[in-house]
Design a binder for these strands. Structure first.
Length: 260
DNA sequence: ATGGCCACCGAGGGTGGA
């Protein structure tokens, strides 16, 4: 079973890339962030034509998350982590007995901003939701764009005064992991950790990146992981000729044993 | 060159992303 997280930076602009990804990588579950569209504009038909189901939580212009899947999801939670009513940053559903929680964590902008406090509050709520879900679903994956680097090694330029890297947000991430989750990235096996590269300054070409797209798995899932990979080929302009403009994030995939 | 910001809204430049 292949499970993927991908911040696509507009689901409609990136639709050709998404369809190519489905056809080429054949994920069982593809979780998207930053849809940036209202429900009526979500490309449901194109996904159905490609043989996939979808559940989505949409809003105008900003945010938006969805889960695209071969099988229909069960016990769907739309926007379970919610502080500001119109922010759609979370969605969860169960596929073949595996609970998938898809987050687009608040960016936070700078550590002195109100948005940073909002990020920390949002992470507190997320932690409460995850702890509840872990009691209900021992086979669980929390994934998405966390906008936090777990370790210094996950940032090309690490500074504890900068957003993505600061102590309080990394502490919040660690307390979520401490609920009983494991980071699917394995430094002993997986070489280049980065999942996001700024559009500016040729950052991808120079490999100036950050690991902020994470998959966190409960113990039952974590011990059944066969593969973890960052699909960096999707960041090349030549990868999808129908849409050479790429997302600034690469998809991150885990493959787990089918029968766990 | 496997490259050099992008997408949103709305009609142009401001905003947010990370």
């Amino acid at each position: 079973m292949k499970i993927v997280t991908w911040n696509v930076n507009s689901v409609n602009v990136r639709l050709p890339n998404i369809l190519k990804y489905l056809n080429e990588y054949k994920p069982d579950v593809l979780c998207l962030q930053e849809l940036k569209c209202i429900e009526e504009k979500y490309p449901l038909e194109a996904l159905h034509d490609a043989g996939y189901e979808s559940v989505q939580s949409c809003q105008k212009t900003y945010n938006g998350v969805s889960i695209i899947s071969k099988a229909k999801g069960q016990n769907i939670d739309l926007n379970p982590v919610n502080i500001i009513d119109d922010e759609k940053r979370s969605i969860a559903a169960t596929y073949h007995g595996v609970r998938i929680i898809n987050f687009y964590v608040v960016n936070g902008q700078t550590i002195n901003s109100d948005k940073y406090l909002h990020k920390l509050n949002w992470l507190d709520r997320a932690s409460v939701y995850i702890s509840e879900q872990l009691k209900l679903y021992p086979k669980l994956v929390v994934l998405g764009d966390f906008n936090i680097v777990p370790r210094k090694e996950d940032a090309y330029d690490f500074s504890s005064n900068d957003i993505l890297c600061s102590d309080k947000e990394r502490d919040a991430l660690q307390s979520i992991i401490s609920l009983g989750l494991n980071d699917c990235y394995n430094e002993k096996i997986n070489e280049s950790p980065y999942t996001w590269w700024d559009y500016r300054g040729g950052a991808f070409h120079r490999d100036i990146g950050y690991r902020i797209d994470l998959l966190l798995a409960s113990k039952k899932i974590h011990k059944s992981i066969k593969k973890y990979e960052v699909n960096k080929d999707t960041r090349h302009k030549s990868w999808c000729k129908e849409q050479p403009k790429t997302s600034d994030h690469a998809p991150v995939m885990i493959e787990i044993e089918n029968h766990i």
